[in-house]
């Protein structure tokens, strides 16, 4: 079952008087439970595609469907709700809220929605996540008291807090050393397996992309390779 569908998606940015064609028409699907990697050099359109899947940007042309919902024409309120209910985010520079501690950062997305779980349930779930990312001893630390790897672990737990269908990670290892980066990808993979959450991450590190079971390779805004290590491979556009 396709949880992410992009159909002939194009994205053009205006930079001064010039137009930048960041994505030139891509079509692909990501199945539920995929551990998908979008790879390519800088400027190939990785982040733009993640932004489009993450509903924080809209395509100039084409259709983006997330978990069966077409994002075309949706207002900010509906997009925000869709993000909250369906998506989790992991950023290259962690983007933790500096005034909140580890527990509060993870709890943060849970407090944004209208249908919040009960206090006890929330506490148990967050403690489970904190345990799962190996930060049980740092529950009440602020982000500036953590190392880069620890911060990204918090970010992973935060991304999973609302039990989203899809977690998007934009170059999650770029600010980490290779060993820590590897452990972060392994943690993401573990969460993917344990919780059956779809992970889509961008990277230009070939060693890391090998762990993915679905690789979409981009160059100059076009897909040059779309392959699955499992059963079937998707279309190449």
């Amino acid at each position: 079952m396709a949880i992410v569908e992009l159909e002939n998606v194009k994205k053009v940015y205006t930079l001064g008087k010039a137009e930048v064609h960041a994505v030139r028409g891509v079509t692909f699907t990501i199945e539920k439970g995929d551990f998908a990697s979008i790879v390519g050099p800088s400027g190939s359109g990785k982040s733009t595609i993640l932004n489009l899947i993450g509903c924080i940007d809209q395509p100039t042309e084409g259709i983006v469907s997330i978990n069966g919902t077409c994002t075309e024409g949706l207002k900010d309120k509906a997009l925000t709700t869709l993000r909250h209910e369906t998506l989790g985010f992991i950023f290259q520079s962690f983007n933790l809220i500096p005034v909140l501690n580890v527990y509060e950062n993870i709890e943060f997305p849970l407090l944004l929605g209208k249908n919040r779980p009960g206090k006890k349930e929330t506490k148990e779930w967050i403690e489970f996540l904190v345990e799962a990312v190996g930060l049980a001893d740092h529950m009440h630390h602020k982000s500036n008291e953590l190392s880069g790897g620890q911060r990204q672990r918090v970010a992973i737990a935060r991304a999973l807090a609302t039990k989203p269908e899809i977690v998007l990670a934009d170059e999650p290892t770029a600010n980490l050393d290779s060993k820590t980066g590897q452990s972060i990808i392994e943690l993401m993979k573990k969460m993917n397996s344990d919780l059956n959450t779809t992970f889509v991450f961008s990277t230009h590190d070939r060693t890391i992309m090998e762990i993915a079971d679905h690789v979409i390779e981009l160059l100059d805004g076009l897909i040059v390779k779309n392959s699955r290590t499992s059963a079937e491979a998707g279309n190449i556009s």
């Binding site: 925000t80 993000r83 983007n95 809220i97 500096p98 997305p109």
Partner: peptide, 16 residues
Amino acid sequence: TKEIGTMRAFGMHQKQ
């Protein structure tokens, strides 16, 4: 700015 973007990404509405 970045923090606002992060909060918005996670589903914080404009009015919040």
